[in-house]
Amino acid sequence: MIINHPLLGPRDAAEFVYLGDASLIDRPDWQDEDAMDQFHAYGYLRDNPAGEHKELWYHEQGDRSWLVVTRNTLTHEITNVEIARDVARARGRDK
């Protein structure tokens, strides 16, 4: 596979390390009353879609960016690649 890095251009996916669903950005608040339930869902439950999937890849053999890649799990087609930090900020991670 080839991932079109937003800063570096097309790169062999072998340069990257895969983590999983981009929902891992949305880490719950530890002080919420139902924090345990939220962390259980965050840590363990996945949509696991057959189709478009937003997922985290880390450019370990490159610039060490974490990226959010939108990829189809049926065809492997990649339709979007974003810098994960930008996505995290846009999703309102405040610290």
Partner: peptide, 13 residues
């Protein structure tokens, strides 16, 4: 790798 994840994705600011 995990520290970079925490830095970029969990506490990006």
């Amino acid at each position: 790798r995990r520290l970079e994840f925490a830095r970029q994705c969990l506490w990006p600011n």
